[in-house]
């Protein structure tokens, strides 16, 4: 495996994703009046801040060769916990926020432990986690809980001006901070390297003496934490807690990560790519809103088509690089 080839393999999906985003934005700008504005671009971040955060967590999981199906349910559970603690228990936000953040973190930690210590499939464990979190939502309340709290209102409605009358929300700042932290962790820490190594080959990582178990548990804990943080931001966005919130979001998240160029076999990909992946999902929705006559299900079909394109692209890239990678992907 030569060095030049590896760079090529790693960068091509990300480049394609970026190019696609630019093309879609240009397409929208040419076709619809009012599309080409900074605010439309910023709205992509405002509307998808929570999805960006989940996708960041999911990127670590997928980089390590695992999968986390529980993210959507954890968002719902966090929104439910935050809403019921604020409205029913009347706790101050200072306590609500940390407790809400703990929900996903603890669940993620437990799932990580189950996956590592009992060698259970991540797919099944996080599936159980998904059922559990969704069920716990309904245990708290079957109805939607509307939040009327000053702090939550503040977080929801504060607009941070960025010049020319454009604005972003607090959640965007949080999301950007998470992305920056994740990029640092993925590329500049030992843990980040362990994640890539684990995704490349767990056997080799183990033989190299890397702390496979600790890394694995940590990955799912991070994903759980990200889901909870996303859940909080989602709560700011919706100003309510509801058991049906973020239904099926795990699929959108996985789609965003894949479109963002992360190989689902693990070991290759970028956190930044996932952010672009989320933005592409966001722009599809914006285009459909601007089109006006298209029904919402076209979003799903469009995402499906994009997934197909990117997966086939990934296959071509992998097939072109060294044979050892081909056999690894075929397994």
């Amino acid at each position: 495996m030569t060095k030049g080839l590896r760079v090529d393999t790693k960068h091509l999906p990300l480049t394609a994703t970026l190019a696609l985003f630019v093309i879609m934005f240009l397409f929208g700008s040419l076709r619809y009046t009012g599309f080409f504005s900074t605010q439309v671009f910023l709205n992509l971040f405002i509307d998808n801040a929570f999805l960006i955060i989940v996708a960041v967590g999911m990127t670590f999981v997928i980089l390590s060769g695992g999968i986390d199906l529980s993210v959507g349910s954890v968002i719902a559970l966090t929104s439910m916990v935050a809403a019921s603690l604020t409205m029913n228990a009347e706790l101050p936000p200072v306590m609500v926020v940390p407790i809400s953040l703990l929900v996903g973190t603890v669940l993620g930690f437990c799932m990580g432990c189950l996956i590592h210590y009992f060698h259970l499939q991540p797919f099944i464990v996080t599936l159980a986690g998904m059922f559990l979190a969704r069920g716990l939502c309904y245990l708290i309340s079957v109805e939607s809980i509307t939040i009327t709290d000053e702090f939550f209102n503040f977080m929801a409605s504060t607009r941070i001006p960025v010049g020319n009358g454009n604005f972003i929300s607090i959640s965007v700042i949080i999301a950007m901070f998470v992305v920056a932290a994740a990029i640092f962790i993925a590329h500049f820490t030992k843990f980040g390297r362990n994640v890539y190594a684990l995704g490349g080959s767990e056997q080799s990582a183990l033989l190299m003496g890397l702390p496979v178990g600790r890394t694995k548990i940590m990955i799912y804990t991070i994903s759980g934490f990200c889901s909870s943080l996303a859940g909080l931001i989602f709560t700011f966005y919706m100003l309510s807690g509801y058991g049906l919130h973020a239904n099926g979001l795990e699929l959108d998240t996985i789609a965003a990560v894949v479109i963002g160029g992360t190989l689902l076999t693990g070991g290759a990909g970028y956190v930044a790519g996932s952010v672009v992946g989320v933005l592409i999902l966001g722009i599809i929705q914006t285009v459909i809103v601007f089109e006006g006559t298209l029904s919402s299900w076209w979003t799903k079909i469009a995402i499906g088509v994009l997934l197909l394109l990117f997966i086939v692209l990934q296959r071509i890239i992998v097939a072109r690089s060294s044979t050892s990678q081909v056999s690894a992907a075929a397994n």
């Binding site: 789609a255 299900w297 076209w298 979003t299 995402i303 088509v305 997934l307 997966i311 296959r315």
Partner: peptide, 17 residues
Amino acid sequence: GVQPIVATLILMVAGRG
């Protein structure tokens, strides 16, 4: 030669549409 989870994910998302 696409990984099964990914290959079938396409239909899972698009099929419902």
